[in-house]
Design a protein around this nucleic acid. Structure first.
Lengths: 339, 339
DNA sequence: ACTTGGCAGTCGGAGCGGCTGAGTGCCAAT
DNA sequence: ATTGGCACTCAGCCGCTCCGACTGCCAAGT
């Protein structure tokens, strides 16, 4: 069946183009890959592949380059997952094990990923709604002012300042603190609203409004906000885009500054261990039509805490990138579970 | 005195070059600026300026561009501080007033600054050693594990996990918490080590080692770490560098990823309200020899809490940039003082 | 003692044309 | 179905010329 060979040709084209970033011709193909046929035969196959939309020729007399559709077929059917080298595994371990707190884990992870893949890497902070409350702390700052600190089991810390309507005393604070913690400790954030709804009514009328303010503030920090935090690294790797600067790099840099956009880009938190690859125009953003996104969930076993991934030119090394992303995701998940 | 006119010529050259990014010739100068002399006269002045090293000609038959030395003279003696427009003032206020916590303030500030100046903006988190302790919290997680949360008066929160050698009870925790807080509350971080040194000895022998661990952890988070946090924004503005991409933008992007480098770049926290401008080669980094840094301290009145600033090509709009940086610094200082 | 117009000289960059070579498509032969 | 042969097509490079923006210098004017 010659269909197999056509796929082999496509794979070879993708691999060569990724490596050299130049249109690849029939001659070069047979030279560099052992596909025991002549250039003429390859040319026929290429004609078919072009007809079907997997490859295209930039101009009449040049080699072919893969289209988005071609890359899609490549990652779906042709990419064999490239195992990481021992050195890479070691790098991941030693780089992440020294992290001292959550910020540090995020920072290190994203850098590591950028270095491994030579792309722009991004990671989303563990989603609040998917984690559980470890502790709520209330710190009195003045007679009508409190600092609320909310600690999630992932290590994420949220803080809020709040002013009460009337003055309170130390007694009141520890009472509320105790009630709050017994209500929400260990609960998933998503369940918190239900658990605290009745809280104010268990206090005497006089202090009820103050309790209400505190509860309201707590709910405010618990609700998933659209501006979930994201960290990114490796923008310098965008130079790999090639020469045409303003047209290709500028829009990408701009998109990367919009964290809200990035969240959409990473996509809904799917279960961990399932790589998502979005290629070129499949992407909803016009400005990113020359880039691909490789993302995956991390942490939390079944359904992921949040997403991480890389953004790079469509002509990236998919097998390698996918392997790195997956490996890092697993390692981060493990680290967070330990912490 | 003709010396005045020569300076006027230099100023005109700088302004024109910044605006057009092209070498400026004698003819263009007299056309665009009203300095009632003929091109020939200007040529003579330019010859002198070149001799003295303030300007240079890229090639024999082209206009002149300012040298680093020329820019230096310009910012030192020629730049009149351009007042911000009402719209800009309004933008600063409305943008920063909505911030909900410290992270948010940092994020918003840096974005704002990037937008105002059209450069890359950076801000350093308020330095720990320069702020005071608002509260230390200990949260028991298991019988031998504690979470320590350290809250600074700037709103910055540090957290550390710690394991004790022997099991402890709730009683022990609240005792240590009380002692700790009475020892360090309101103290400047720099003074903390002295205040807690004697703490373990006031506990009974049996629990002393646990207290020691807690104190050690506290000190660890108090010591100024080299990786003080930095946030940056506006890398897309680097496209202003002009065409030559790999040689001019790549090294800058790389430098921007190294937060330690950036800290050096911003320089030692000088007193607020004193703008520091570092031009081209004055910069210690080879890779940043085509960029200038405009920085200033913010917060804390007399001596600043930390630094903020922008990085851009040497041919930047110094008066405008300096005005924006100063205005933002003042506003952030005010916000932090309120919070 | 400056300033100015005039003039010769320099040189980067744009525009043009021809050449080259990689690569294609098609066809006839195996 | 595969292959070698062959005519054809362009993109990109090289070298050429030409143009014009500047400069530096000098001699004359205020």
């Amino acid at each position: 069946m010659t269909d197999d060979r056509r796929l082999a040709v496509l794979r070879a084209i993708v691999e060569d183009f990724v490596a050299t970033r130049e249109p690849v011709g029939s001659k070069a193909l047979v030279d560099r890959h052992q596909l025991g046929v002549s250039p003429a035969t390859v040319r026929n196959d290429m004609a078919v592949l072009e007809e079907e939309g997997y490859i295209a020729a930039p101009h009449t007399s040049a080699g072919r380059i893969p289209t988005d559709k071609g890359y899609r077929l490549f990652v779906d059917r042709l990419a064999s997952v490239k195992p990481l080298s021992a050195a890479e595994r070691r790098a991941i371990a030693s780089f992440l094990d020294d992290a001292v707190d959550l910020d540090d884990v995020m920072q290190r992870t994203v850098r590591l990923l950028a270095q491994l893949t030579h792309q722009v890497a991004l990671i989303q902070y563990p989603s609040l709604t998917r984690s559980a409350v470890r502790h709520v702390e209330l710190v009195p700052l003045s007679s009508t002012r409190l600092l609320m600190v909310l600690i999630a089991d992932t290590g994420r810390v949220e803080q809020r300042m709040l002013d009460t309507a009337t003055a309170f005393d130390e007694q009141f604070v520890s009472e509320v603190r105790a009630h709050l913690n017994s209500a929400v400790d260990g609960q998933r954030f998503a369940d918190v609203p239900a658990r605290v709804a009745e809280l104010p009514s268990s206090f005497p009328e006089s202090s009820r409004s103050n309790v209400a303010v505190i509860v309201a503030t707590l709910l405010e920090s618990v609700i998933e906000r659209p501006d979930e935090r994201i960290v990114l690294s490796g923008t310098a790797n965008l130079t790999k885009f090639g020469a045409d600067f303003t047209r290709s790099v500028l829009p990408v840099l701009e998109a990367l500054e919009e964290h809200v956009v990035l969240l959409n880009l990473l996509g809904q938190a799917t279960s961990s261990d399932t790589l998502t690859v979005t290629i070129g125009h499949e992407n909803s953003l016009e400005s990113l039509s020359a880039t691909s996104v490789v993302s995956i969930g991390y942490g939390g076993g079944g359904d992921a805490l949040a997403q991480l991934g890389v953004v790079g030119p469509t002509h990236m090394d998919y097998p390698g990138t996918m392997a790195s992303v997956r490996a890092v995701s697993r390692y981060v998940g493990r680290i967070l579970a330990e912490g």
